[in-house]
Write a protein that binds this DNA or RNA. Sequence first.
DNA 1: CGGATTTGACCAGCGC
DNA 2: GCGCTGGTCAAATCCG
Length: 553
Amino acid sequence: MDKRLGLFFDTLSPTFFHPFTKPQLNSNSSSFQFNTIKKNLTMDVHAAAPDRILIDSAGGDGDSEKRVVNEMNFFAADDHKETSSSLDVKKEIASVPDRDAQEIKLDINTGLNLSTTSTSSKTDQMAVLRADLNKMNVENQRLKSLLNQANNDYRALQMHLYTFMQRQHLLKAGNSQSPEMVKRNEGVTVAKQFMDLGQAEKDNHEIVQSSSENTRSQEFPISPENIIVESMETPKINNNSNEIVALDRLDNREESSERAHTSGWISNKVPKFNSSRDVEHASQTMTSMIRKARVSVRARSEAAMIADGCQWRKYGQKMAKGNPCPRAYYRCTMASGCPVRKQVQRCAQDRTVLITTYEGNHNHPLPPAAMSMASTTSAAASMLLSGSMPSADGMMSSHFSNLSKTALPFSPSLASLSASAPFPTVTLDLTRLNPNNPSQFQPPLSQVHAASQNLPLNSVTMPHVFGQVNNESNNFLGLLRSLGVETPHSPQNQMQAPAANDTISAATAAITSDPSFTAALVAAITSIIGNSHQNQHNGNNSTSTRNNSDTNS
DNA sequence: CGGATTTGACCAGCGC
DNA sequence: GCGCTGGTCAAATCCG
């Protein structure tokens, strides 16, 4: 049964079970006691002998006498023997109005299909039950529609707010933009809103879950389930607009999480849940992991950074193990406190390849040029963490471990996933997009490319991941082709073992089934290709010109 | 002179 | 416990 629906019935149980009286657990015995207020009639139904009924008649002379109705067969239609007790009961029932009598009949229905009345009254009883059930169904439908309405209102408000803020930002930025630019911004805004809807839906679901859990916790104040659900709450990816809307709600949690894991953005390490006390830490760690889901972009560039439209400030540089090229650390300076960081490092084997790794989501409006990349990081993180985190990770781990054995000999990929790395990472390999002709993939650089990519140790490359999808209506393929990008179908790919095909298909589905990610990825590719061309003509972008010397050293 | 970059120090997590 | 590694901090330095 739907959890929420069940919960809904739980909360309404006193009404739902009407006209039954609410069963109360007798603390002194294992029996249920059904109180009928009007008749002071109590029946103890012993679980061990459902057909052995104790009738406690408190009426009459006042002394409560309990009589055992031995082996009373309530189901025998032809049993015309009546004990004195049952006669008393019948007398009392006959002395009350019809409606009350009906209730009494229902009151002594134990739910064990015991029958004390004729077949016709049983039919009436069923009819009453059905009517009540129908009534509750109608009520449930009404509540559902109310909830949907609330969700729709929430989304509409969110869209309006984001549009408003975007317009404000554009107005502040001055009227220097051409109408085409404004139009493009609006287009990006719409796309962003579309991508945010998925998260909004998740948020709504969380709200529903949360309120439901609160309701449940009122009924069951100490519930292990509540504790777990509470601790697992809010695996959240902050898309830009969402983050603006819900900043207050998120910041404290993120900041505390941040402080709990004092070292910053890739601070590292796979969480261990060695003991039950780690359950509480699990939520923090999970939130941290989600916040640290990364998108790595490999692109050929002579510049120190790819042009992503954001302003960055370098705050550190380190020599990383296994790579003679230093790794530079940047943080976004477009707004104070923006949590977005990026690492830039040249590939050890091919120094023309620049590896840029993004983490986090901007907490401020973005210029159009930066929108696509930021959306990609958000959407990729969303894609990585769509579904339940453990299952997603498990799926990736298992499939990718298979891939590592079966798929590596194939040609390099456009995208890869690393779920078993310290933090889930999507790697977009744009090095095979011919910079002189973005519509053509370059031929494979080598058969075993992953080893030369300086990818995280556990990162596994998916060969031609998008080309594996046979469905021509696939979102990403369609979008890629609309960009003029050829999707590879090399004979090599068709020679893969069936097992590899299965795992690749599963991994492919994981990527391509998220429309927001595919849309954002296409936007990012378009942006990078565009910027690459622009850089070729105009030189390096303004934000990276000053950073060239150090990382190339 | 203010902002950005450099670079050594520091810190935390992990493995041995 | 110690060393290694990745990441961040912050004072010194550079540059427009």
